[in-house]
Amino acid sequence: MEWVTLLLDAMWAAIPAVGFGMIFNVPRSALPLCAVGGAFTYGFREVLMHHHLTIELSTFIAATAIGIIGVFWSRAYVMPRPVYTVPSIIPIIPGTYAYEMMISLVSMNTDGVTDALLSSFIENGLHAVSILFAIAFGLVLPSMYYTKRQKPII
């Protein structure tokens, strides 16, 4: 039963990956792989979080995994790596955390600073920033490994 929920969620996560691929105008042949990448990244992160890893660590591992997979795809289909990796990480972007952070910031301005608002601001802000950095580091690591070789990937 848990696997069914996981698969369904991963399928829902494939939709934003394809939609954002269209905003970035990726070639049509790359769209199916973007969908697979988005579903994989989201599903992998859910599995890791299910095993009681923190959300930041799971995000980092999932982003690194899609970064490594992107290297193989880019070599096989002669495509720059960001074509696959950037749409794939879109489903794990911490939109809600950033939004909650902004809300509490504005309420502090209008209603005065309270302990609850302040702690909500700091908690959500830390989550949003650390998840963003986890995504970025995860995507950068694989390409850092390949830049020490002289021969380019594609």
């Binding site: 934003p16 939609g19 954002f20 905003i23 970035f24 960001p82 990796t85 950037v86 749409p87 990480i89 879109i90 972007i93 939109g95 809600t96 939004y99 909650e100 809300i103 963003l132 995504i135 970025a136 580091f137 995507l139 950068v140 390409s143």
Partner: peptide, 22 residues
């Protein structure tokens, strides 16, 4: 609040952020 936060997600500047880190 979930509706409000996810309806603006089409404006996430994903490419500039990732490119700047890379």
């Amino acid at each position: 609040s979930i509706v409000l936060s996810s309806s603006v997600l089409l404006l996430v500047p994903g490419f500039p952020y990732i490119n700047s880190m890379l």
